[in-house]
């Protein structure tokens, strides 16, 4: 590893935590259960237990778990309604799935010794590509050729429109890239920083500072985990709005 530094037993391996390992055996084929598989399943389990077990009581006056489930439901529901409008609510279950998946993957990744599935570009890339392909398909199905109005800015002077169209097309195709890299980058950066600070704890003189820094970064990362899930979902809603109402 390029960041390896050997001096006084100081060792930085901030990227080691992201390695994909098979749970049983050595080789990683496409079907092998790996640590990715394990944490993906734990993520799904956590999301399901929040929403399904939480709402099991079906009480008019909700229990604590049920209120959390309802708040999550309400948050995503309101987000779609505010941004994409009533038509967007058709896609509510998928957007809720995305939000819960990203939020729980981020949060579970902060458990010590855990593996963060959303720190992998393969995972976030698929999430972003699913949103991109899905939204583009919805745009063309709902609006037909009018969907291309998204790139043809009618409010701008005619001479500027072709230039704007090029910029709009580029920014449209950058969307899945920025969506996936934002999430993965945030996760990688946060976890790597925590690991680096933890590495400094090997030096006795700076160990207390390092421990305080790790605690502070950890708290910050909890916030980032939730904010990134929120941002991923809200951007999905924005893209969905563009697909449903392409004219500016």
């Amino acid at each position: 590893m390029a960041t390896e530094a050997t001096g006084g037993g100081l060792e930085f391996k901030p990227m080691e935590q992201f390695e994909v390992k098979a749970l049983f055996g050595e080789t990683v084929a496409w079907y092998t259960p790996t640590n990715v598989t394990l944490w993906l399943f734990l993520t799904a389990l956590a999301a399901i237990s929040l929403l399904v077990l939480g709402s099991r009581g079906r009480a008019i006056v909700p229990s604590r778990a049920q209120s959390v489930a309802e708040l999550t439901y309400g948050l995503v529901h309101k987000m779609i309604e505010d941004i994409a409008g009533k038509e967007g609510l058709r896609y509510f279950p998928y957007i809720l799935t995305l939000f819960l998946f990203v939020a729980f993957a981020n949060l579970l990744g902060l458990v010590p010794m855990a593996f963060t599935v959303t720190s992998h570009i393969a995972v976030t890339g698929i999430l972003a590509m699913a949103v991109f392909v899905g939204v583009t398909a919805i745009g063309f199905i709902k609006n037909g050729a009018h969907f291309l109005d998204l790139f043809w800015v009618r409010s701008a002077p005619l001479a500027v429109r072709p230039i704007l169209a090029v910029i709009e097309v580029i920014s449209y195709f950058v969307r899945p890239l920025s969506l996936s890299i934002r999430l993965a980058g945030n996760m990688i950066a946060g976890h790597a920083v925590i690991k680096v600070f933890a590495g400094f704890a090997a030096i006795a003189a700076v160990a207390p500072v390092a421990v305080v820094a790790v605690v502070g970064m950890y708290a910050f990362e909890v916030l980032v985990a939730l904010v990134q899930a929120y941002v991923f979902t809200i951007l999905t809603c924005v893209y969905l709005k563009d697909a449903l109402h392409p004219s500016h």
Partner: peptide, 20 residues
């Protein structure tokens, strides 16, 4: 490892989506 990750991700997402 991409194939592995993507396969299990899709499985998880489909399960999660269906349950939700």
């Amino acid at each position: 490892t991409f194939g592995n990750q993507i396969f299990w991700l899709v499985v998880t997402l489909v399960v999660l989506y269906l349950v939700l």
